[in-house]
Design a protein around this nucleic acid. Structure first.
Lengths: 133, 133
DNA sequence: TTGTAAATGTTATATTATAACATTATTAAA
DNA sequence: TTTAATAATGTTATAATATAACATTTACAA
């Protein structure tokens, strides 16, 4: 099986390290400005790395925010199934790691409408921390 | 209860009619060019109408496509819970109308992480029609 | 009738993403 | 080990998506 930690190219490595170390989703142009010291000069170089990283399941895109996070599910099988909690108050985003949910959605078939090969789910609400305040 | 068919303003009406009649998700600038004959001149006028229509649940945004569709679930209760099938072959998009799924996701709580008030789910795959070909 | 919120109109600009084309690196097969 | 194919890179320009800021008008409840 293709491993998630297969060798990354130079640009892919730079972009991935940045995303992995961040404790929040990063936007493409913010990534760009962070890696400009390291030789990446143009948006396209970032987008190409991002696209590749998504393809191999090392990162996910938070569609509603146009931002990118490292995959926390260290299992390449579910790299094409992503789910997130997004706090509407503090903007904190975390990946849902719930086996039942993954199983339920991955095998979801309604009226035989479609062979589902991938999904993305974004839950919005108020996170635990913000509920206390 | 606030009705979904509450009175819309002029611009909101124009934009909504267009989206409702379309048989595919529409993009903001495509909407703009369609309504330019009818007095709407600037992107912002379209975006403002779109935002309002989303707020009251008459349309949804397909986040992965930056496109907008009319809500097919004629029940305002679930206007904040949207799910779609997206065919990766023909780009056809349809709203999932599955009570069990809605119920499952609306009441989803994992580790008490978050009070979920809204979600968006996008399934990708190959639609029935494209599977035949 | 008047004050407030919502909607509109308008110009400019910010943000996100890809097209097109030239070049270089990597890899697998002959 | 050459060669051919694929992937990755570099670069400039531009397309596509979305909001800021400000002035004005409309709707409507107090």
């Amino acid at each position: 099986m293709k491993q998630k930690n297969e060798l990354l190219s130079k640009n892919q490595q730079l972009v991935f390290e940045l995303i992995e170390k961040a404790n929040e989703p990063l936007k493409a142009y913010s990534i760009l400005s962070s890696v400009q010291k390291k030789g990446i000069k143009a948006p396209l170089q970032v987008y190409r790395a991002l696209n590749k990283l998504m393809e191999i399941g090392k990162i996910h895109k938070i569609e509603s925010k146009n931002a990118f996070v490292a995959c926390k599910n260290n299992d390449c099988k579910i790299s094409k199934a992503s789910a997130f909690y997004i706090c509407e108050n503090c903007e904190d985003i975390s990946e849902v790691n719930n086996f039942k949910l993954t199983k339920y959605l991955s095998s979801f078939k309604a009226n035989n409408e479609m062979k589902v090969s991938k999904y993305n789910l974004e839950f919005f609400g108020i996170c635990k921390n913000c509920q206390i305040k």
